[in-house]
Design a protein around this nucleic acid. Structure first.
Length: 852
RNA sequence: GCCCCUGUGGCGGAACGGUAGACGCGGCAGACUCAAAAUCUGUUGCUCGCAAGGGCGUGGGGGUUCAAGUCCCUCCAGGGGCACCA
């Protein structure tokens, strides 16, 4: 039996595609376009099967859409700046650039061996000056448009990476990559004004119909819109007013105190004359912000002695506290406390013996008996003890009091967002230099456009902690573009999420002198199908949406939503192994001994842990080489597509890959050694066909229709199942009139339908079937609507909803005939126990339900 | 605390409100082989039965319906997002 020589065949087809430029595309407004993009990888060193799952999905879509006649843009590149390159530089004295480009070379070859239909002429690497120079220009435009600014602020400092992190990069109080507990530091930082678009970023989520619901929800949560009011409280004996933010202005008459954040300017000012207050503030700042700390931390306050005046109650004075639970970063850094209707305020009030006044009466409760115990009432109800608000509902009261506050100049309705501006300064070498110059006389000066790009120096050392750009002997010393005096370059570089926030535009014009050409972007954008991990639900996807808006406002573009369709695929997981000393082991270091126990190379006992996301740290990665060399790219692709639905996590098992390999050979055998002789290529379909052949032919067309729909809906596992089903049917086909012609139609259909998943094998078999055109250049098969329906159907017969029999009937059998046939079944008669039918439900071609 | 998702054989998973378990993995039996691997064939939800044929089955409980894995209510378990956010 001839075995499929995948090594030779895969290399050959990859060469042919490359030589013919099969997947190279050009902007062509005369043709419909389709832009398929997978989130580009960080060149960490080696591709693993998790990457390949992602790219294979994109490749199926790209090849499928191409066969459907679209001009398909399917590019690949490298998100090439980032900390691991610097860590490698420190660990093994290799320059980050060298390390990065070497990794890219390895990973590019690995990708090519997977037979992915990329237009490699569009490859980009974000660490190349030809890429990042455009980013520097964008930044200058943002600066001019007020979309970039520098300010001193409390930032998240990652002590392990010696750099600042954006809010989005802090997970549970720890750095998203290092896992180190994040500290608060006051630093001058560059920010991008993402908050300018908070409203639009939120509203437009509604229009993203082809995004997963949960990503939309996560972005909505992250932007965090709250409607409320700003209220001004006069301060006794002071000229300025205190501004607070609340979502419950309706409870203003229940206020019993105000509280400032420890970082509030007024708190700092009062602390100067009050050592005890200064000590309290210092204590608050020592407190971390980790989840564990927050949960156990006591609500603490310090009475400043200052009194605030209630804006609507003449003569009512409230104490002003500094409290450890008030955040400077949200609202105005100050609150009013209404203990009756906010649990935290209630806890605080009980602790400091402040009055608790109920102002919202729950529905159906007697006002005379209603008191607040240990639980604040946060629900809806009727206003009481609230002057002109009494009797109103909560929503009406909010409206009424906001109106009143605005009238007397004591406040105004407002909307607050949780979203903060995006801090993009990083104290790192391997990133895009921020193109500004600090001049003692002129202040912050943008680098003139003619001096772009600001190149990274190559001669850097990593022998001391901190930013190598800062330590470099000469790089930062320059002259001021304004006055010509000696000045210093900004030594911070951009967060690497800046590069990935616009790379999909660059793919449209990868070699343009400008960031991208309008003609190309207008044609290709938006990305029709974007595919990547859920971990970027907020970070990268939100930043990209921001960039599109910012670029639009700087005149680069018209559109604002970059990704029309998004698919978030699951992770690839693998069993973990641990030696007795707790050390993690690679799967290939583990074997079974004679008694079936897991042992390491030295025969010591090994514990198998649970399935976890493949990660370098737990060593449960499956490299590509072994798989591709042992089974071929197509086998790996088939397994990754067929084992689980694409949005779910996939458990990598060696048995699974064996199963896929078996199918590769089965399909190969079906074509090269068919169970019955195939009609010659292009021979007409004879008529009439034997009933079996007719049935098989209908199954073929049904398969085409089903697989087409499954691929469109990203149900690749089901698509593969349907093709396998067709293969099973063809293998069992019996000879008869027309069988040879149907066999050819069936085999050709199977090959074409599996093409997007296993492109090399499909080309090989397409050629073996006598075709001289590439399968990659063939149109997608069309199902004949007349053949998609069965001519006979299996109808289920139920008695009182329980299945009792199935009967074969011609399609669209009339009610009377169907009922007669159903009632004639012995099992049906027995189940009816001689009773007469009360009602018979008939669902044509599906079911007869006899109700007795 | 608020919000979202998921729960189906030994396993991964199929299933427009209409025959639950497609397709595959694994298992079992058989063929080929001196033997094994590979490959092929059959079989495989649980249970009663020699069989024909029953009964039970989609996390638990309840409901709607001629009919519920699917819709509604509720509880449980697992996963995820947001959160001292005023």
């Amino acid at each position: 039996m001839a075995r499929y020589n995948f090594t030779e065949a895969e290399a050959r087809w990859q060469r042919i595609w490359r030589e013919r430029g099969t997947f190279a595309v050009k902007t062509d407004p005369a043709r419909p376009k389709y832009y398929v993009l997978e989130m580009f990888p960080y060149p960490s060193g080696k591709l693993h099967v998790g990457h390949v799952r992602n790219y294979t999905m994109g490749d199926v879509v790209a090849r499928f859409k191409r066969a459907q006649g679209y001009n398909v843009l399917h590019p690949m590149g490298w998100d090439a700046f980032g900390l691991p390159a610097e860590n490698a530089a420190m660990a093994s004295k290799v320059h980050p650039a060298e390390w990065t480009y070497a990794n890219i070379a390895v990973m590019r070859e690995q990708l090519k061996r997977m037979g992915l239909s990329y237009d490699w002429s569009r490859e980009i690497a974000t660490c190349h000056p030809g890429y990042y120079r455009h980013e520097q220009k964008m930044f200058l435009d943002f600066l001019a448009a007020g979309l970039a600014y520098r300010r001193e602020s409390w930032v998240n400092w990652d002590p392990a990476e010696h750099t600042v992190l954006a809010n989005e990069q802090v997970i549970d109080g720890r750095g998203w990559r290092s896992g180190a507990l994040v500290e608060k530091r006051l630093l001058a930082q560059w920010f991008l004004r993402i908050t300018r678009y908070a409203d639009d970023l939120l509203d437009t989520l509604k229009t993203l119909e082809r995004w997963p619901e949960r990503v939309l929800v996560m972005q909505e949560n992250w932007i965090g819109r709250s409607e409320g009011a700003r209220i001004f409280f006069a301060l006794a004996g002071r000229a300025e007013r205190l501004e607070i933010f609340t979502t419950r202005p309706d409870t203003l008459f229940g206020a019993s105190f105000c509280a400032l954040s420890p970082n509030h300017p007024l708190a700092s000012e009062l602390a100067q004359a009050n050592p005890a207050l200064a000590a309290f503030i210092a204590e608050c700042n020592r407190m971390g912000t980790s989840e564990a700390m927050l949960e156990t931390a006591e609500k603490k306050g310090f009475d400043t002695g200052v009194k605030v005046l209630h804006p609507l109650l003449k003569g009512s004075e409230l104490p002003l506290y500094v409290a450890n639970f008030v955040l400077m970063e949200y609202g105005s850094g100050a609150i009013f406390g209404c203990p009756g209707h906010d649990q935290r305020d209630l806890d605080f009030a009980r602790k400091y013996r402040l009055p608790v006044k109920a102002v919202v009466l729950p529905p159906g409760v007697d006002a005379a008996r209603f008191t607040i115990g240990n639980e604040a009432y946060a629900g809806d109800g009727t206003m009481i003890n609230s002057d002109f608000l009494d009797g109103l509902g909560v929503a009406e009261a909010k409206r009424a009091i906001t109106e009143r506050l605005e009238k007397v100049g004591a406040g105004q309705g407002t909307i607050e967002y949780r979203l903060r501006d995006w801090g993009v300064s990083r104290q790192r070498y391997w990133g895009c230099p921020i193109p500004v110059i600090h001049c003692a006389r002129c202040g912050i000066m943008p680098v003139p456009e003619r001096d772009l790009p600001v190149l990274l120096p190559e001669d850097v050392t990593f022998d001391q902690p901190g930013n190598p750009l800062d330590h470099h002997p000469s790089w930062k010393h320059t002259t001021c573009p304004g006055c010509g005096a000696a000045a210093e370059r900004e030594t911070d570089t951009f967060d690497t999420f800046v590069e990935s926030a616009w790379y999909f535009y660059r793919f449209c014009s990868p070699r343009a002198e400008r960031a991208f050409e309008r003609r190309d972007v207008d044609y290709w954008m938006p990305v029709d199908q974007y595919i990547g991990g859920i971990e970027h639900a907020v970070l990268h996807l939100l930043y990209s949406r921001f960039f599109s808006r910012a670029l639009r406002d700087c005149g680069y573009l018209d559109d604002k939503e970059p990704f029309a369709g998004l698919f978030t695929q699951g992770m690839v997981c693998h069993e973990t192994y641990q030696a007795a000393d707790g050390e993690w082991l690679f799967p290939e270091e583990v074997r079974r001994d004679a008694t079936g126990n897991l042992v390491d190379a030295q025969g010591r006992k090994v514990t198998a842990g649970r399935m976890e996301k493949m990660s370098k740290s737990k060593k449960n990665v499956v490299g590509l080489e072994a798989i591709v060399e042992g089974y071929g790219a197509d086998t790996a692709r088939l397994y990754l597509l067929s084992d689980s639905p694409p949005e779910r996590d996939l458990d990598w098992t060696d048995a699974g890959i064996e199963g896929a390999w078996r199918y590769v050979n089965r399909l190969h055998r079906l074509v090269t050694e068919p169970p019955l002789k195939m009609a010659p290529r292009g021979a007409p379909m004879p008529a009439p066909l034997a009933p079996e052949a007719e049935k098989a032919r209908r199954a073929i067309h049904r398969t085409t229709a089903a697989v087409t729909e499954h691929i469109e809906k990203f149900r690749f596992n089901s698509a593969v199942a349907r093709v396998r089903e067709l293969t099973n049917l063809l293998e069992a086909m019996v000879d008869g009139p027309g069988a040879a012609a149907v066999m050819r139609e069936g085999v050709e259909t199977a090959v074409r339908l599996i093409g997007p998943m296993m492109p090399h094998l499909a080309e090989e078999l397409w050629q073996a079937l006598g075709h001289d055109r590439l399968l990659a250049d063939e149109a997608w098969p069309a199902a004949d609507p007349a053949l998609v329906v069965e001519d006979t159907v299996t109808v289920a017969v139920q008695v009182n909803g329980k299945l009792r029999a199935t009967i074969e009937l011609p399609r669209d059998t009339g009610r009377t005939e169907a009922e007669t046939a159903a009632l004639a079944q012995p099992t049906v008669r027995r189940a009816m126990e001689g009773k007469t039918p009360r009602k018979i439900i008939l669902v044509p071609n599906r079911i007869v339900n006899v109700v007795v």
